[in-house]
Amino acid sequence: MPATKDASAERITAYLDAELPDDEVAALEAELAEDPEALAEVEQLRRVMSLVQSLPEIQAPPDFAEKVARRVRRRVALGADSTWSLVSLSFQVLSIIVILTVAGLYMMAQLEQQPTGIEREQIPGTAPDDQVPAPVEP
């Protein structure tokens, strides 16, 4: 938004909110009297503000305060056992490390046991358990 428009927006907002100094109010009203379009815009804004201002207030649920108090009590109780929370956190981290280590070792063991594809590709007759027919006695 250009600076002049910004300044104008600020003045109109202050005017609608009754925050504009008296001398500036008179100047702005004189300007608006010369500009029916701007005046209509200001009047529409005033109407919208009036409608919005008349929206009823919303009430919190009746048990809201009690729920908050309960959550705070729980938090305070947990806070008293903060040492346990830390132990619990360390335990969780340790557990994850152990699980990952065991999984890694298992996978490595599996890889060692399984021959690679190249190893599995056999040349007929070269396999150690290939049954080479015994020479026939003449």
């Binding site: 919190a60 959550r71 705070v72």
Partner: peptide, 28 residues
Amino acid sequence: YQHRIFGLMLRMIGNRQEAEDLAQEVFI
């Protein structure tokens, strides 16, 4: 302050349950 904070949350979020959770968070 519960009504003002809850009202702010509800008008901002538009969902009653979410607004209540958030308002509780504010007080916590």
